[in-house]
Design a protein around this nucleic acid. Structure first.
Lengths: 342, 342
DNA sequence: CTGAAAGCGCTAACAA
DNA sequence: TTGTTAGCGCTTTCAG
């Protein structure tokens, strides 16, 4: 009796070769789509493969090719709620979709703390992946250094804090926020508040800087009491909005640095009895194409997500292939989409 | 000049051996914590390892050990919003935390459609992982079959639809829902509605069955107009609640099959001017320990998530180690937590 | 177009 | 306690 009990020992190249009546090399060629194989040989191999349900052993293959055909998307989620940020989901879906048509595999790696980040670093250094896309980089993340030093291809989703020579893809957060503030100022608002993102994330910092630049350009003062820090979540946005209303009841506009926060802010405004946009104009920042599904429709700074995710993988693949010397980066333009809220 | 330009060729066991003045076998023993090594040898190896920044090549190791020390957590997310379900995040965090103390790596794999599921199946069959935890199994998912047939250790998070002999961990969804309905009936409610989960997910089905059983046990009729299907999201819950109120304005209680939906339902009730719990009593189902953070506090069926995630990995590891013949499963008890809403 | 042979870096008997 | 040796399954020159 054959072994039905133990874990099925998967067939090897040799077994296929024997069954097909050819050499291992020929089987390998067929499996790897080499053109230099006669139709008969190819056919024999193919049917042997099918019959044996042969699947190549990746470990053996990678050992010699030094390629795993796998890339990792690393999610830093020190905060509980980051996982539910639609921006994350959008990036994951986008990258996943981009890779779906290729023969590359995508694995998601999550880190909740520094220890787990180091574990991920080890995982990568051990040769499990060909490259890494890193999301949600905070100011003190050790992973970029670890990976860079190990020479592992790396692309950041979001501009790094320091000016290191690392590839990244980012939206023009500063430009978009500046445009939003300028727009509010141009439409006659005089007390324009902002709810920022977390200021240990570069998107939070850049969007705040853009808001300040926009006000300055319009000749308006940047008032400290018109600034509240949020955490990119809906609940955080509502809380920040409430705090702003408490602190500066006279505000007549607010630039909210992310759409989930804007949804929360809208709710807080409604509960406070403020009309939007008559009393208070609201402009959000759309990280995940949710603004249009919003109720009421939200004026937002829109990012071209559909451009950004392919770019992310493109830059990574270019590094993996070894094309182009320098770490290449791209900043994607944003644009303001006017809707009923402003 | 040494190669600073090309991808750093990582040092091998032999190089360490040479530098430490021992054989490869000894280095291997040290690296694998074998006790049978003299302190001097160990020390020499250790410093050589440090000096060379040696990291073992996993492919080579796995090729011989037939182990990757990696398990996959597969997320099925055919629906856009599943990613933001706090239940997912909780399971991911829990499993991740459980594994953090071990030397096992966790990778997340996401599938948006059948094609991607098959890609994951291939990934697993190629030997990338030692085992798989599968979340959010829908009625027609091909992955369980693929993995089972390939003999890859598998644990489902949630009971399978058919009665196949596969390991799984689940909450007592039926029992919990039954208790919720019975509780509402016992407190004098007579028109108890329910917002179900998606009925192509077993949790949705089981919670509906429990609700029906609870009503039946209390001698109450199960009215079709008191049932609305939701999708486990907040928006879906609000929509379903609105539909119920339209269809059966006389309802005096509602069992909502997930907490995000319950949050939406509470909002819809508030907007409809119904008081909770005076006019309408609400009981939710807590998939992610969010109920207590709710505002207002939500009466819910609570699941012991802190038991379930370790169990998930425990059952998987037991299969990987080959301990215990049959696929072992566990159903975790739930309990009703009374709060202000019911 | 095909096969023989030499490794990829590591572990695991088996001897010493 | 240590070293020697033989592979793990695959790709890839290099001859034929």
């Amino acid at each position: 009796m054959t072994d039905t009990t133990s874990r099925a020992a998967s067939p090897t190249l040799d077994e296929v070769a024997v069954l097909a009546g050819v050499s291992r090399a020929t089987v390998s060629r067929v499996v790897n789509d080499s053109p230099k194989v006669s139709p008969e040989a190819r056919q024999a191999v193919l049917s042997a493969v099918a019959q044996l349900r042969y699947v190549p052993n990746r470990m053996a293959r990678s050992l010699v090719t030094r390629r795993t055909d796998t890339v990792a998307l690393v999610l830093n989620e020190p905060n509980t709620q980051v996982f539910s940020d639609p921006f994350f989901a959008s990036i994951v879906r986008g990258v996943s979709a981009t890779l779906a048509d290729t023969d590359l595999n995508l694995v998601l790696l999550t880190a909740q703390d520094e220890r787990e980040q180091e574990k991920i670093g080890r995982y990568a250094r051990q040769g499990h992946v060909d490259g890494v896309i890193l999301m949600s980089v905070h100011s003190d993340d050790p992973l970029p250094d670890i990976l860079e030093e190990a020479g592992i291809p790396l692309v950041l989703c979001g501009r790094p804090f320091d000016d290191r020579a690392v590839a990244y893809v980012d939206a023009d957060n500063r430009g978009g926020a500046r445009e939003a503030a300028a727009y509010l100022a141009a439409s006659g608002r005089r007390r324009i508040a902002t709810i920022t993102g977390p200021l240990d994330m570069i998107a939070g910092v850049d969007r705040l800087a853009g808001y300040q630049a926009g006000l300055a350009a319009a000749g308006q003062e940047v008032r400290a009491d018109l600034l509240a820090e949020g955490d990119f979540t809906e609940v955080g946005g509502a809380r920040a909005m409430a705090a702003l209303l408490e602190r500066a009841p006279d505000l007549d506009a607010v630039f909210v640095a992310s759409d989930p926060m804007a949804v929360g802010a809208l709710r807080a405004l409604r509960e406070a009895g403020r009309r939007v946009p008559e009393d208070v104009a609201v402009v959000g920042f759309d990280d995940a194409a949710v603004a249009e599904r919003c109720d009421p429709p939200l004026t937002t700074v829109a990012q071209p997500l559909t451009d950004m995710t392919p770019l992310l993988t493109e830059l990574l693949l270019r590094q993996i292939e070894g094309v182009g010397e320098q770490a290449e980066s791209r900043v994607c333009r944003t644009h303001l989409v006017r809707r009923a809220s402003a």
